[in-house]
Design a protein around this nucleic acid. Structure first.
Lengths: 147, 147
DNA sequence: CTTGACCTTCCCATGATGGGAAGCTCTATC
DNA sequence: GATAGAGCTTCCCATCATGGGAAGGTCAAG
């Protein structure tokens, strides 16, 4: 199996397979005489494991730890569980952050009439910040242009 | 006000102030004869607006749009509301993604006894993926090393 | 033998942020 | 006035995971 077949069999792009090899997440693939990478079933299984872990939001570093544990038949399941639970806690923290933002924005948007009139509580609030007094927008132009 | 004072007055780091200037999110600051950037109250107000928007998770591109609307006294509030609501929808989508991950991982972890024994449903599931048959971990070593 | 699909390496870009070096400037103290 | 140290300038590099693309070699089908 060459890298393209390995990519479609595993769901990991060829680009990423080379990258994972480069950062030593996976061992260097064997090569044909012409220099093409070749992959066997073991390698595909590893790539599928990586893809699934990535879909669950694990970082490359966490995937490295999980891979090492996966290969270690004598691992203690406690360590795997700890990694998973740490990751869950991390995800939950990010969810709370996002929920805070969404709640604030929903609240602001609900007070914005959303028509052609110019007054808008959303901008007024953003210019105020958490506790600072209201600020007037500067007269300056920002000069922002898309590049 | 020089850049350090502007940074502490606005909560945006000096590094980021220079960056925002470089990408044309804010106009080039005035300079002293020696080349130091100088900021007036209008500029500080803009930086505070940016910091608040950033805290609400707006991207630089969205901040550019909000800034333009903030400065435009004749803006229609509908446009601001649309940007805010799009952003809320985006945040909600990310929350759902994270919740899916967290649910899967919590489910897996709850079935892992988490002791010194090696069998672990978490790794078994990750190696299976969504619908593929269970895979055996490869005998290969991955060669992963921290760098 | 040609064509087109695929492979290789190498470089660059993303978004938002920080680190740090080399060199200039300002301010307070001696 | 000299000197020290804090603060400013620009420039380059790194992050994390991913993709784009160029230049050039290889393989398989016709």
């Amino acid at each position: 199996m060459n890298i393209g077949e390995a990519a479609s069999a595993s769901g990991v792009s060829a680009k990423m397979i080379r990258y994972y090899e480069q950062i030593d997440l996976i061992p260097p693939a064997g090569r044909t005489e012409a220099g093409y990478r070749i992959y066997d079933e073991d390698a595909i299984a590893t790539l599928r494991f990586i893809r699934r872990a990535r879909d669950l939001g694990f970082s490359v570093e966490e995937m490295a730890a999980l891979l090492a544990l996966w290969r270690d038949k004598n691992r203690a399941s406690a360590e795997v569980k700890r990694i998973a639970e740490d990751h869950v806690a991390d995800i939950e923290r990010r969810i709370r952050e996002l929920q805070g933002m969404a709640n604030t924005l929903r609240h602001l948007a609900s007070h914005c009439h959303g028509d052609h009139r110019p007054d808008c509580p959303i901008l007024e609030d953003i210019s105020e910040g958490e506790a600072a007094p209201a600020l007037q927008p500067p007269s300056q132009r920002t000069g922002f242009r898309r590049r």
